[in-house]
Design a protein around this nucleic acid. Sequence first.
DNA 1: GCGTCCAGGTCTACC
DNA 2: GGTAGACCTGGACGC
Length: 297
Amino acid sequence: MSDTTKTELFIETPAGFDFPRTLRSHGWYDLPPYELVAGDTLARVLDVGGAEPVTVFVKGERAGLRVSASVRLGARAGARVERDVRHVFRLDERLEEFYALVGGDPEFGWVARDGAGRLLRSPTVYEDLVKSVMTTNCSWSLTKKMVTGLVGALGREGRDGRRAFPGPEAMAAQPAEFYREVVRAGYRSEYLKELAERVASGEIDPESWLRSELSTAELRREMKRVKGVGDYAAENLLKLVGRYDVLALDSWVRGKFRRVRGRGRACDDRKIARFYSRFGEWRGLALWCDMTRDWFE
DNA sequence: GCGTCCAGGTCTACC
DNA sequence: GGTAGACCTGGACGC
């Protein structure tokens, strides 16, 4: 239940939901507009359709999330905030089948017990798409630099000075030089410009991927029509829209698998795929939980 | 200080 | 369909 007429909302979470684990489920919490405050609160600016964006602070409590907004919210803005918070923490995602599957596995039972498996995402698929392009072929520090530059330069500013993630229209209005010189996106600059233009014009609708009836293979092909989105980025996005029958192997996962499961010996992708194949349509999520287990120990 | 390597890959040309 | 080479950037590392 939630009260949308005040600046504070309480949103119930599903049984077993683990706030810290979801918050730090992967690196997104470390990229603007997300900001970790005092180690246990997620701050972020949300564009809720009003004259100015709103900063919200989300903190985990027993059985729910406490959401504080920077300004008094009307009913419509409050509903938007709740929708976005539910979306980014995946509160409506049904994981019972996954937990039943891993619960019967001696090595993966902890996943269900600990409430793992909810991957933090952005309020829009568009934001996840842009960020995914910015994670490719570079260090994490460069990804942070690019995202920080983009948000700092183009994001709408809230009352407290924090900025929202820019929408496709704002991004499409910038020349490729902006992405090269300000965002420092290098060869990705043309890709980002083209992506923003295609989304702003309606040629591509990333939000539709959330409810697409295409098979995972077909949706993957659709995602890869975006320049800058290859196998890894597409599969990462598939996970973020709730398709877990892909692995999204990158150099970090390959290295981690080698250390955790391969006894330090090099493993090719087929071996990694075989290892998680017993989890069927949930193999990508099982892989991610397995590779990040030590983050929370 | 400088050069090299490589990181949460992808694209294009070519076979 | 598979593969080689190019591609921006910036931090780490060796010298």
